[in-house]
């Protein structure tokens, strides 16, 4: 019987990524797609894979400054993701608002609404920086399991 818990420990080590666009300009989304899709910056080496449904996700990558219009949809999507989840804020916008800070249409920083665990600043960040952020998020995620 002792073997099964050990086996479960080994088996639960592949977090799935999910992307939320909270009103981003698409720059960070392109970089996030690049980290995963092209073989040059292969994020699947870390055991990650992009998934299309929030119900399968373990690590959430959020880009964009959380515009007023998209806020309800983002919060609803975020609630659909099962615990334990790790949130990564990608780009300067969700962290502080960047150049959109203090705009009437923007609710940045995003950590007022969503608990953020890892920040990856940059406008947009390099693919390698996003991979570094994902690697940090995986460490946090393993602690929470």
């Amino acid at each position: 019987m002792g073997l099964i818990p050990d086996f479960k420990k080994i088996a639960t080590r592949s977090p799935w990524l999910y992307r939320i666009n909270a009103g981003s300009c698409n720059g960070c989304d392109v970089e996030m797609a690049v980290t995963a899709l092209i073989p040059r910056y292969d994020v699947e080496r870390l055991g990650c894979q992009y998934c299309g449904s929030p119900k399968h996700a373990d690590i959430v990558l959020i880009s964009g400054p959380l515009t007023v219009r998209v806020k309800d949809a983002v919060l609803r999507l975020y609630d659909e993701i099962p615990d334990p989840k790790v949130t990564v804020a990608v780009g300067v916008c969700p962290i502080s608002g960047g150049i959109f800070r203090e705009s009437y249409a923007v609710l940045a920083p995003i950590d007022q609404y969503i608990p953020v665990d890892v920040n990856v600043p940059g406008c947009p960040p390099r693919p390698q920086a996003i991979i570094a952020g994902v690697a940090k998020a995986i460490d946090i995620w393993r602690e929470r399991l």
Binding site: V120, P121, G133, K136
Partner: peptide, 14 residues
């Protein structure tokens, strides 16, 4: 230097 990824606890040290 592009490697600026950090955890939330370090946010205000950046």
């Amino acid at each position: 230097d592009w490697n600026l990824a950090h955890t939330q606890a370090e946010k205000f040290d950046m």
